[in-house]
Computed example of a mutant assay.
Amino acid sequence: MTSTLNAPTAVPATEDVSARLLDSAALLSYDPADEVDWDADLDPKLYGLNPQWSTLYGTDMWNEMTEDQRILLTRHEVCSIMSTGIWFEMILQQMVLRDQYCKDSSASDFQFALTEIADECRHSIMFARACTKMGIKAYVPGRISRELGRGFKAIASAETAYGGILVAEEVLDVMQRDWMRGEDVLPLVRTTSKIHVVEESRHMTFARQQMRERIEGKSAARRKASALVVAIAARMIVSNMVSKDVYVNAGLDADRAVREAKNNAHHHMMMRTSSEHLMAFLHDCGLVTKPAEVIYKRLHML
């Protein structure tokens, strides 16, 4: 008979993933205070983000704009997206802290959760400094969105909390992978995007694993409810990415800009591209129901 006394103890999937992520964080993490050249002058000829990611790219309005107007618009757009990132990172930190409250601090998933929170604190400061460097005041979501965010962070848990986190991270990840390679994009944005992409890749892996663990074996009713909550969170995040005030502050006709952005087929296609991996994962988890689909299609994520 084979003795089981020295057999290794089975490690939960979440624990194994978290241990690997902790090793990765120890090997490759950044301090934006040192990595970003905060003293460098901003080249007036460089965009805030790749023009193709502008909400107006390809519209009649874009074609009528001067190059200086396009550059100014993209700088306001990227600062609006960064400001939305800060807003949701603050929601994220509170949800993760609440989820890990009084759990086993020796567990690697607990330790990685705190590592993620530390990363998000640095990212928020990094985005705030980048907007300040560009001379652009922070964009704050409207009151209804702020209150919805307050409610979401208070009640979301398990797969809904990590689903909301994943939505915000996945959509921004695809955008920033383009920004960090954009030769016509400000080095400030390219560097902050690179830092965010590298560190958020670990956060996304953690969120996916947490969602798989939390949803496994749950009832169809639970999946339907969670699917709707995650879709509503997606609406809250995506609809706040580019504020209407961006167009005002860029010196444009805001009402016309909003209309053209709303009907911009090119930008709709870019949003679907940025959501492909996210939608595939949510499908695999059984979290894309008919009501959720309606919301995602309105957001041009499907």
Rank of each mutant, 00 (worst) to 15 (best):
V36Y: 01
V36A: 04
V36I: 14
D37H: 15
W38S: 13
W38Y: 12
D39L: 11
D39Y: 13
D39C: 12
A40F: 02
D41T: 13
D41E: 14
D41S: 14
L42Y: 10
L42S: 15
D43A: 15
D43F: 12
P44Q: 14
P44N: 14
P44Y: 10
L46V: 10
L46T: 13
L46S: 12
L46N: 13
L46Q: 14
Y47Q: 11
G48S: 12
L49C: 12
L49R: 15
N50M: 14
N50D: 14
N50I: 14
N50E: 15
N50L: 15
P51F: 03
P51T: 06
P51L: 10
P51R: 08
Q52A: 14
Q52V: 15
W53S: 01
W53F: 09
S54N: 08
S54Q: 07
T55Y: 00
T55C: 00
Y57S: 00
G58T: 04
G58V: 08
G58W: 06
G58R: 00
G58F: 08
G58H: 03
D60R: 10
M61C: 04
M61N: 05
N63Q: 12
N63Y: 03
N63M: 05
N63C: 05
E64Q: 11
M65E: 03
M65A: 05
T66E: 10
T66D: 08
T66A: 01
T66G: 04
E67K: 10
E67C: 02
E67V: 08
Q69Y: 00
Q69H: 00
R70A: 01
R70D: 00
I71Q: 09
I71F: 05
I71G: 05
I71V: 14
L72W: 04
L72H: 11
L72A: 12
L73F: 04
L73S: 05
L73A: 02
T74G: 05
R75H: 09
R75D: 04
H76Q: 06
H76M: 02
H76S: 02
H76Y: 10
H76K: 03
E77P: 03
E77F: 02
E77S: 02
E77I: 01
E77A: 02
C79L: 07
C79S: 13
C79Y: 09
S80K: 07
S80M: 06
S80V: 05
S80Y: 04
I81P: 08
I81F: 11
M82A: 12
M82W: 10
S83I: 05
T84P: 00
T84M: 11
T84Y: 01
G85S: 06
G85F: 10
I86M: 13
I86A: 11
W87Y: 13
W87R: 05
W87T: 11
F88V: 12
F88C: 07
F88L: 09
F88G: 02
E89V: 02
E89W: 08
E89C: 00
M90P: 00
M90G: 10
M90R: 14
L92G: 01
L92S: 01
L92I: 09
L92R: 04
L92Y: 10
Q93Y: 06
Q93A: 13
Q93W: 08
Q94A: 05
Q94E: 11
Q94N: 08
Q94S: 07
M95W: 06
V96H: 03
V96C: 05
V96N: 06
V96S: 06
V96W: 03
L97Y: 07
